[in-house]
Each structure stands twice: as structure tokens, then as C-alpha cells.
Design a protein around this nucleic acid. Structure first.
Lengths: 143, 143
DNA sequence: ATAGGTGCAAATGGTTTGCGAAAAC
DNA sequence: GTTTTCGCAAACCATTTGCACCTAT
């Protein structure tokens, strides 16, 4: 079995090795938003022999093939997630670090607007909103 | 002289040392979007004795004080820029890496929408659009 | 005199790479 | 038999930290 990206360009097709399947399965099953550390932790759980090098090599491959998105919130927090459709965006609580996905039709409107004004051919949009979730807000107040 | 953030909360006021002024000046004068390496390069130009440790310590301080924003496009590309108003967002060309700033009233509409739906108190929005700029698009076609 | 800042050099820690062995085709 | 992947250990490199000195109050 092989993996590749439907609208692939010059990127070669690659075999779906046991390790790659393992990693992709974890990413798919995850409630999403795993960092490399957590992904490795879960991978070790399923196959104690898998190595970090393999993990990073394949994360990079997945990124290049467009199977996985890398989301870097800041220097210290990079998360990986399987691409799913429809596209969605992220809302992060600065207190508890909970991440919520959301969608909004306003974004495609915005993209159209920018495309028209700038002449860019836009292929990807990343949007993070940060703030405080209802729980953390009220805990804050209680203090 | 001192630096602090107008709507400061618990963050102490800090003295504006020569090194801090130097760094802030560079960030202010920059056409924006400097990474740590480039910032250091320019800093060394003005004061050959300034150290990387000072640069990182102060970048972190500036972030905490809300003077500077850190934008991480991916693992390898973190950029720092002085906060200016009004808020603006980024459009990056995947081919030439050019970065364009833009604003749009649709974003505050979007934020209102998300705030209403999620109950979050939203304090920051980061939006990157990636694609190909008009020049790179036509060079691509020419090939 | 005390607190905070700086430079230097060493430590840290996440990510990458070189290499020989193993697997895929 | 050639090509690709893997695991291991070593290398890399951006960032952080410990410490002694310095500066400002």
C-alpha cells in the first residue's frame, strides 16, 4: 500500500510502512492537536521500538505531501493534525490551553476580498484566536 | 526612562536600558518581520558587544509586556514585530517569501461572531494567508 | 546596599543527520 | 540488486541559564 496526495505535483508516491501507518492512525484517532512529544508518547505505546528520528522524518514527509498540517502557536508549541475537510480554525484559551475548532463562512469571504485586492493566489489560511474561555473567565473573577 | 505597557496588569515596570532601547529601535525602524537572527545581526552592527542572551531575554520580556508580537509561521520561521495599531494580518508568498500586511473589517466581524458563539473573551487574533504573489504566479507560468 | 541587567560560557532540549542493518520492490 | 526506510547514536543549533561583574537607585 502507498500514500500520496491526490492533487500531488512533483512529490513521489511513498510506501505506507508500518511506522507510517502507526503515526497516521494516531493522528487520525486523536482528538487532534498533538505535539511531537505527545505523538511520540502514543506511538511508543503501540510500538516500543519506534524511534524519534522516524517520527520526525515522517512528520516532515507528511507535511510535504500535504497530509498533515503543522500549527505553530508560538516557539514552544507546535501541533500536528491530519488535514480534514472542511477547513477549520482554532480558538485557544490562554489559561487552560484548551483548543477549540471552529468554522465560519466569513473566512472565505475574507479570502476572496484579499485575493481580489492583492492579486495573490491564496492556497492556505491559518487563523488562531486567543483568549479566555468561559470557565477560566469565571474562575478568574472568583479570585 | 522606563518602559511599560499602558494597560499593564501585574507586570512590573522595567528600566529602558541601552540594550533595550537599541533592540526596540531596530524593531521600530524595521520594515517589520525580523527573526531573532536578523535582529541580532542588526544589533551587532550598532553595538558589537551586545549578546545573544540579552537579545533573547529582552525579546521574551517585550513579549510578556505586550510590546512585541511573536509570529511563528512554522517551526523554522519565527518573526518579531513591534505592536502597532491598527491590528493587521499577514499574507505570505510561498515562492519568494515576501510578506504583505493587510487589514480587513471582516475580521472584527468574525471575532464578534466567534465571541458570541463560544463565550470566549478574545484578546488576540493571528491570521496568515499563504499563496503565490502575482509576480511568482506569472514566472511560474512562463516556465 | 540592594535589585536588576549584562556578557560570557556552559547547559539544555527539540530536531536533524550519518551510518549500517533491514525491508520493499 | 537497487532503492528506500529504520533505529541508534551523534551532531546540530536556537534558546536558556548560572554566574560574576556592573549599573542605577
Amino acid at each position: 500500500m502507498r500514500i500520496n496526495r491526490n492533487h500531488a505535483t512533483e512529490i513521489k508516491e511513498r510506501p505506507l510502512t508500518t511506522q507510517r501507518r502507526l503515526l497516521l492512525d494516531i493522528l487520525r484517532e486523536a482528538e487532534s492537536h498533538l505535539d511531537a512529544r505527545e505523538l511520540f508518547h502514543r506511538a511508543i505505546g503501540k510500538d516500543p521500538h519506534i524511534s524519534l528520528a522516524t517520527l520526525y522524518r515522517n512528520l516532515r514527509l507528511f507535511k510535504e505531501m500535504g497530509l498533515v498540517d503543522e500549527r505553530c502557536l508560538d516557539e514552544a508549541h507546535c501541533y500536528y493534525e491530519i488535514k480534514r475537510s472542511p477547513e477549520h480554525y482554532h480558538l485557544v484559551c490562554k489559561a487552560c490551553r484548551r483548543v477549540i475548532d471552529f468554522e465560519s463562512p466569513l473566512i472565505s469571504k475574507l479570502i476572496d476580498e484579499v485575493r481580489r485586492d492583492s492579486g495573490f493566489d491564496i492556497v492556505k489560511a491559518s487563523l488562531y484566536l486567543e483568549g479566555y474561555c468561559p470557565q477560566c473567565k469565571s474562575e478568574e473573577k472568583a479570585r
